[in-house]
């Protein structure tokens, strides 16, 4: 126990650095996947059949395979198979590859949530807007958008909380996020080796982060509670 107290400042410092990388991947994924998901959602609902089939196939592949495999393929395939390591080495390259994988993966999940939200608004809302002389754009922004947002908040919060934990998968391409930082103390780092507790301790970070997210989404849901 005394030993752990002695190691604690060193470990926390290392985990903080790792968690910063975790958060970076988390926010970059959100910023990329939230709009890309909308593009994919409209693609799969398109009346132009080839586009709708293409997007549906992409969504099927991305949702049908493990994110860990996607990370490996996106990171290693260009270099090992095509002989063209587009990501470059080092942490920056790994972060880029991880970001692309996560954005693509999460955009596909988000797109299905959006689609449910868009199609969940009754057609009567559009018709009421039309007979009142509104344009399609006005109907989307003034009538349907808020109803869609209300519908997608609960499933989106679920997915976003999963994303926080999924970032740990980037460990597979050696991205130096918090799990990687914790694991380092098993192999030996900064004079500490064979310690497994730092790895266990990473759970606290995820728990606090998701606690905050849960509170934020709870407040957003409450804010949208004024209508049904």
């Amino acid at each position: 126990m005394e030993l752990i107290l002695e190691q604690l400042p060193i470990v926390i410092h290392a985990l903080n650095i790792g968690f910063l990388q975790t958060l970076k991947l988390f926010f970059v994924t959100l910023i990329g996947a939230i709009p890309l998901g909308l593009v994919i959602a409209f693609g799969s609902m398109s009346r132009f059949k080839p586009l709708s089939y293409l997007t549906k196939i992409i969504v099927w592949i991305v949702r049908g395979t493990p994110l860990m495999i996607q990370l490996l393929i996106i990171y290693y395939f260009p270099g090992l198979v095509l002989g063209n390591p587009i990501w470059g080495g080092g942490e920056t390259g790994r972060f880029l590859a991880a970001s692309v994988s996560f954005i693509l993966n999460y955009a596909c999940y988000f797109s299905e949530i959006y689609r449910g939200g868009i199609q969940g608004v009754p057609v009567g809302q559009t018709e009421a807007g039309l007979v009142l002389g509104m344009t399609k754009t006005q109907i989307f922004f003034k009538v349907k958008l808020l109803q869609m947002i209300k519908r997608i908040v609960p499933p989106m919060s679920n997915e976003i909380i999963t994303l926080v934990k999924d970032t740990s998968l980037a460990r597979i391409i050696a991205l130096q996020e918090i799990i990687w930082a914790g694991q380092a103390f098993m192999k030996g780092s900064q004079g500490i080796s064979g310690a497994i507790w730092p790895l266990f301790f990473t759970a606290v970070y995820y728990l606090i982060c998701n606690g905050i997210l849960t509170l934020l989404f709870g407040r957003l849901e409450k804010k949208l509670d004024y209508f049904r």
Binding site: G124, Q125, E127, V131, V143, F227
Partner: peptide, 12 residues
Amino acid sequence: GLVFQSFNLFPQ
């Protein structure tokens, strides 16, 4: 003008 069977008021 059209009044619908199911009202179709804007809930928000």
